[in-house]
Design a protein around this nucleic acid. Structure first.
Length: 421
RNA sequence: GUGAGCGUAGCUCAAUUGGUUAGAGCGCUGGACUGUGGCUCCAGAGGCUGGGGGUUCAAGUCCCCUCGUUCACCCCA
């Protein structure tokens, strides 16, 4: 019988990797808290309808990337492909619009998208999601951008490119859309096949095409900033000036558009040069129409999602520090007939707060010592027949090589002293 | 969904134009050191060469299918 392997596009994050993730998560939590965001735990699946209405029926995510299934109660459910829609749903469902605005939430966890796996892209991937819901102020946009930059700064990442743009609102986007179509319409045949298809459905996406021919062609395309309505223009101007006041290094990119329908006004991405084609470590922006789209009142919001798999990948690429990997500080070495008593000494160490371990495979002293060494242990607590008879434990400091005998009752205290010294 | 590359010990990789019993390093286990880590030396375990079919006297090697993987398109975090 063939052994079962993990499904395509998902992966196990093993201990050699998981301690790095713990560090990144710790920094994420602290940064979010420092900016006044509170954690919220969201379900991994939602009614399919939430994503159809929230993300947009015609987006690639909804059209061909969702894990949708019917449960035993005949409900259509979908593994979340992103968290923003859930976040807004939870905000509405628990009436946060009656509390102080904006409500500032963060969450982190796996998202699911049925895509062809490649570097930095998995079918189950982790996002850190930050959302400020209930305020239209441009300074909130700036706060979320600043939060993402601070997050990356604390992780020690460098050389990231921050690009921002405004994608307008339902009032001015159609105006721009028309202007763009007018420009591109005359050059339609010069566009790549996919872009010709996008022309009618979503011409803004053509600006994002990586095809060099399309790129050259859109170089002279009208700039969305010239089409923005006064409100969107003022909003964007405030975002830019506030970013400048914070000395945030950002690049304006008129080609930046977003793949999800709910974005309005500010859109931004953080790009890493150390990844492959999937180079966005963070994407976000404002979504003032999302709440209405999913059936609630008009509530503005802004936020971003950071791809943690890609963040870890970039950090590894750049040789960033992940802090220290946890390892036992003490190791109890026993002989066959002192193991039971030895396990009691181990328990005493642990209840005193000393990370400690022992061998359970009946290895000889030498092998146990070697095991302690490879696991990075500082103090070897040798407890053989000789020590048991005398009521002591021999402590060997594996860093200095010095050894001493201490009464069993003083074990934890003495080990603690060595660790401090 | 499309395209290209790659699947050989736990890991990283060898194996001549198709040619005997598929090797090495690291890791693992044990020993030299009969109660003490790192260094050194020695030994051992570990493989249906991803799976299936075909060509051939002979396949890890060539062909087909399939699965997985990598990268890119696409899309996005």
């Amino acid at each position: 019988m063939e052994s079962i392997k993990a499904p395509r596009g998902v992966r196990d994050i093993l201990p050699e990797e998981s301690w790095k993730w713990a560090h990144v998560m710790g920094v994420a939590r602290k940064t979010a808290e420092d900016f006044g965001f509170e954690e919220i735990h969201l379900p991994l699946f939602e009614h399919t309808e939430l994503f159809c209405r929230g993300i947009g029926d015609t987006t690639d995510v909804v059209e061909k990337e969702m894990y949708t299934f019917t449960d035993r109660g005949d409900r259509s459910l979908t593994l979340r492909p992103e968290a923003t829609a859930s976040m807004v749903r939870a905000y509405l469902e628990h009436n946060f619009q009656h509390g102080p605005q904006p409500a500032k939430f963060w969450c982190a966890g796996p998202m699911f998208r049925y895509e062809r796996p490649q570097k930095g892209r998995y079918r189950q991937f982790w996002q850190l999601d930050i959302e400020a819901i209930g305020a239209a102020d441009a300074l909130v946009d700036v706060e979320t951008i600043a939060l993402s930059l601070e997050f990356y700064r604390r992780l020690g990442l460098s050389g990231l490119e921050v690009v921002v743009n405004s994608v307008g609102c339902p009032r001015c986007r159609p105006v721009y859309r028309q202007a763009l179509q007018a420009y591109l319409g005359e050059r339609l045949t010069q566009l790549c096949d996919t872009c010709q298809g996008r022309f009618g459905r979503n011409p803004l996406r053509i600006l994002d095409c990586k095809n060099s021919g399309c790129k050259a062609l859109t170089e002279g395309a009208p700039d969305i900033r010239d089409s923005l309505c006064p409100e969107c223009r003022d909003h964007f101007a405030l975002v830019l000036s506030a970013l400048e006041a914070q000395h945030a290094r950002v690049t304006l990119d008129k080609r930046l558009v977003r793949g999800l329908d709910y974005y309005t006004k500010t859109a931004y991405e953080v790009l890493s040069g150390d990844l492959g084609a999937q180079n966005a470590v963070c994407g976000g922006g404002r979504y003032d129409n999302l709440a209405e789209a999913i059936g609630g009142p008009a509530v503005p919001g802004v936020g971003f999602a950071a791809g943690l798999d890609r963040v870890v990948l970039t950090m590894e690429q750049q040789g960033c520090s992940f802090g220290k990997r946890a390892c036992p500080q003490a190791f109890v070495l026993c002989e066959a007939d002192t193991r039971a008593q030895g396990s009691a000494l181990l328990a005493a160490l642990r209840s005193a707060g000393v990370a400690a371990d022992m061998d359970y495979t009946g290895k000889g002293f030498k092998a146990q010592m070697k095991l302690a060494d490879t696991r990075g242990v500082r103090v070897a607590c040798i407890f053989g027949g000789n020590e048991a008879a005398r009521g002591v434990v021999a402590l060997k400091d594996l860093r200095t090589g010095t050894q001493e005998s201490v009464p069993q009752e003083e074990l934890a205290a003495r080990v603690g002293a060595i660790l401090k010294g």
